[in-house]
Design a protein around this nucleic acid. Sequence first.
RNA 1: GUCCCCAUCGUCUAGCCUGGCCCAGGACACUGCCCUUUCACGGCAGCGACGGGGGUUCAAAUCCCCCUGGGGACGCCA
Length: 478
Amino acid sequence: MSFDRVRVRIAPSPTGDPHVGTAYVALFNYVFAKKNGGDFIIRIEDTDQSRYRGSSEDMILRSLKWLGLSWDEGPDVGGPCGPYRQSERREIHAAHAMQLVDRGLAYRCFCTAARLDGVRKEQREKGQTTGYDRHCRDLPVAEAERRMAASEPFVIRLKMPLSGVTKFDDALRGTVEIENQRLDDQVLLKSDGYPTYHLANVVDDHLMKISHVMRAEEWISSTPKHVLLYEAFGWEKPVFCHLPLLRNTDHSKISKRKNPTSLRYYERAGILPDALLNYLGLMGWSFGDNIEIFNVEEMTSRFELKGIHLGGPIFDQTKLNWLNNQYLQKLSDDRFVSLIRDQMFAPEILKALRPFVVERMDRLDQFVDKNSFFFNGALQYDAVPLVPNGKTAAELATMVSELVERLDEEYEWDMEHLKACFDAHREAIAWKPKDYFMSVRLIVTGRKDSPPLFESLVILGREMVRFRLRDALKFLRQ
RNA sequence: GUCCCCAUCGUCUAGCCUGGCCCAGGACACUGCCCUUUCACGGCAGCGACGGGGGUUCAAAUCCCCCUGGGGACGCCA
């Protein structure tokens, strides 16, 4: 038997802002599905309750819609293979894990996190590869039963073969193989009853009849584990295809620390969805005939998996801007007007702004100038005294980089949380409030006479604030 | 460290599979010129790459090997 229909999926994890890498993988999956008359599916992989963020799923779906990518099945539209949210499929995953235990292909492991940490630490010190030492692999059934009865927490691990080689064919790279003895006894089911990525992914891909697994390159090394799982269940494997990883300018995997990665940032920065999609289509793929400007339909008509170039492309803001300019020039009057009016000067933003700005202006014609920082992207820092008296640029830079770290940890973006976060940081480094907040104010708003700081931060949004802080950091360190 | 993946201008890439048409084409960026009351757009020109070494071959960016370099993975995260 083989798959009678092309079905692909993207499986974002709702742990934060919608990521540009998700859009990248989504585009290629989408185009591949359309090219082959298949289905494009979205499945939410929310199996990590510690990192789960309630609003994240909505933001992801919203951003993908903004881009204009539509899906045939997903958590919001449903479909024949639902539910499309993994947290709602826990019983299915647990049952599959148990099936493997019953067949002797998986086992219960009672090792504590502390023990595992210790094992890893020791391995690292000896210069060995870290991995589970299989302490519980051969636990007598009776003992396992006894400890279970005593309600000791446990996980279920897959019994990897101790010898031999596991191989799979990557649609772009050919055969990839790895010696089984290098494979860790992967956790399938966590002690909280949720599945790990590996289990949930394989089970759901199979149940959802996914024919091609197109995902980022970072998954290559765990693919053999997935292959072994397919084999343990006796299921037909999909075609695996690992896409290159988007990179920062320093060639590392793209990350929010070094590059804006949130789709919401690009939307707010006024990048047009078509331009972003077009740019993403240029990453590792080319249209041919020296044509660089194309839409998704055109990309679909020419798309071939084999045409994907495997070198990791650097996400270059400058070229994105150029492309966006090309699209801007082609916009119709109506579209241009509605974008400026509804997006740049959205009524919600103006309303949110009003209470803080009215008292600072005498005439309407001052509005744009006094509040330009709400609408601008990068600010000019050479004309403002960012560094307080008595401090050095290096000290300010250190302060800002710590602040960015702290803000990245802060999930809630409201007055209360921001204030607590800033106060804690300021106290920790013992800066005078005046120096501390004036520097932040200048960095974020570019001027001394701005509306109240926290209100401004809230309205500006996390993405723009992070962008400005990092931008200032670059300025301070140059 | 171990394993895996990758390797053409600074960046995105074409060419590589099916060696010769490639003293390597396009785009971004950069520089200069033109257009222009400014800036931008646009046009033109310039700068700029097959990582190194071995093979195979009449012939290698293209095939093979080694080295180097880069990246990823080594979690009860995905």
